[in-house]
């Protein structure tokens, strides 16, 4: 679809409207419920174990550019860092994208300050490892084998390097928590990690950890949006079963003329 059709305009506007309304009402202080997401409770446990063993924590915010997904990952790692800072514990966070470097440095410095130990933060623990996927993987594998982290937090966009990182960390006995919207890598995280966030649990994670009204509201809005889409799918299947491709056409490329034709047919060809 190059440009919006009228149904696309309406659907996108309605979805956006629902999400924004939910965000704004949450910001005005509406009470919101969020169900438990199992993997997230393990974060404290993992940090605690790393502190006990006296080995560092390794984080990764994946291969993404500075985009939505990477920023979510950084928010999760930052909250891990705040917890770690309370025990004056080190986090190593290798970076693949040059533009991530200043943002990650700022975010982690802020997190350590919030945890009361700005002195523990060290820029050298956020090395930039080339712009290439497997050079990054080779570098992270080397860091894992040398530093032997006791816990790893892998969040963000991942591709084939996911398993290289996760298996190396597994070999050194790290407890691992991972989350990614890249569906193709989820099975490998399931195989190699202790806790995995699946699908849009990833988007829910930041809301769950930070308890920010904006993010909670957004999540509620997303839920309503998904229900709406699901409702349309079910209605569409029923209509298709009775011979009407109405909903299917709404999501097609053709604009109004299809609907004009549909209504002509429905009203007896006027």
């Amino acid at each position: 679809m190059k440009h919006a059709t009228w149904p696309a305009r309406i659907i996108l506007l309605v979805l956006s409207g629902i999400i924004l309304y939910a965000i704004l009402s949450a910001r005005r202080g509406k009470k919101l419920y969020l169900r438990r997401i199992p993997g997230l409770n393990a974060i404290e446990e993992a940090v605690g174990r790393a502190v006990e063993m006296g080995r560092p924590i390794l984080g990764s915010i994946g291969l993404g550019d500075v985009d939505v997904i990477t920023l979510q990952a950084l928010a999760i790692i930052s909250s891990v860092a705040t917890t770690a800072a309370r025990f004056a514990h080190r986090i190593v966070l290798p970076l693949r994208n040059a533009a991530q470097v200043p943002i990650a440095e700022e975010a982690l410095r802020a997190a350590y300050t919030a945890g009361g130990r700005p002195d523990v933060f060290n820029e050298q623990d956020l090395p930039f490892l080339s712009g290439e996927q497997f050079a990054y993987a080779a570098g992270v594998a080397g860091i894992i084998q040398r530093e032997r982290p006791a816990a790893t937090f892998l969040f963000g966009t991942f591709y084939a390097e996911a398993l290289i990182i996760a298996e190396n960390a597994n070999q050194v006995g790290a407890i691992q928590i991972a989350g990614t919207p890249s569906t193709t890598q989820v099975p490998f995280f399931i195989a190699a990690c202790d806790y995995v966030l699946i699908g849009d649990e990833y988007y829910a994670a930041t809301a769950y950890i930070t308890r920010q009204p904006t993010l909670l509201g957004s999540l509620i809005g997303q839920d309503i949006g998904k229900m709406l889409l699901l409702g349309m799918i079910i209605l569409g299947v029923v209509l298709v079963t009775f011979g009407s491709p109405f909903i299917a056409n709404i999501f097609g490329d053709k604009d109004l003329e299809t609907f004009a034709a549909y209504f002509r047919a429905a009203t007896g060809g006027k």
Partner: peptide, 26 residues
């Protein structure tokens, strides 16, 4: 079904970024 969920999540995050409603570390 997973990608529809992620799609709506992306749309929501895009809206928050675009309108500077986003919250978090950065």
């Amino acid at each position: 079904a997973i990608s529809l969920g992620i799609g709506v999540g992306t749309l929501a995050t895009a809206l928050r970024l675009w309108l500077s409603l986003e919250r978090g570390a950065f």
